[in-house]
């Protein structure tokens, strides 16, 4: 595979990086962020009864972590303009794909539930949950 890595002029471009100190700082940041999302399961988390907020928070933390890894470990911070072309389209497509599944798959029970006997429904949910009074919105209780 002669053409692979020795193709002359473009082999030289070694990306500058931030050095070991930088990596350690990012590492500490990642650990802290992981701790933060883990904290949401603990009793001190003030928004325990607001799963919507908690989940948004956790996804924001996950995005921040992914961004840290991308920027520093994968060196995208120091790369030239190609980084946008090679990363953004896939992300946009991924979001389009996931979003387009929502109406038909995400809401698959919604129209059926609207039509179903309401009494029937409530009976099922109480039993399904057993003696735990958690509705499926409530965060896990540990």
């Amino acid at each position: 595979m002669a053409t692979e890595d020795s193709s002359g002029d473009n082999a030289q471009h070694v990306t500058a990086t931030g050095g070991v100190g930088n990596y350690i700082a990012v590492f500490v940041g990642l650990c802290l962020l992981t701790g933060m999302s883990f904290l949401t399961t603990s009793e001190w988390w003030p928004w325990r009864d607001q799963p919507g907020f908690t989940r948004t928070f956790m996804m924001a933390v996950a995005c921040a972590k992914a961004l840290l890894v991308l920027l520093f470990f994968m060196h995208l911070k120091h790369e030239a303009g190609w980084k946008y072309i090679l990363t953004l389209p896939a992300c946009v497509m991924a979001i389009i794909l996931a979003a387009s599944l929502v109406p038909d798959v995400g809401f698959r029970l919604r129209s059926a539930a609207d039509r179903a006997e309401p009494a029937n429904n409530t009976r099922e949910t109480t039993i399904e949950r057993g003696q735990e009074n958690a509705s499926d919105q409530a965060p896990s209780d540990n």
């Binding site: 794909l97 387009s100 599944l101 038909d104 798959v105 698959r108």
Partner: peptide, 17 residues
């Protein structure tokens, strides 16, 4: 499989995607 809580349309979406 809808009996298992799945959705046949999921395949159709992914397949045609």
């Amino acid at each position: 499989l809808s009996e298992a809580g799945g959705q046949p349309l999921l395949w159709q979406h992914l397949f045609w995607f």
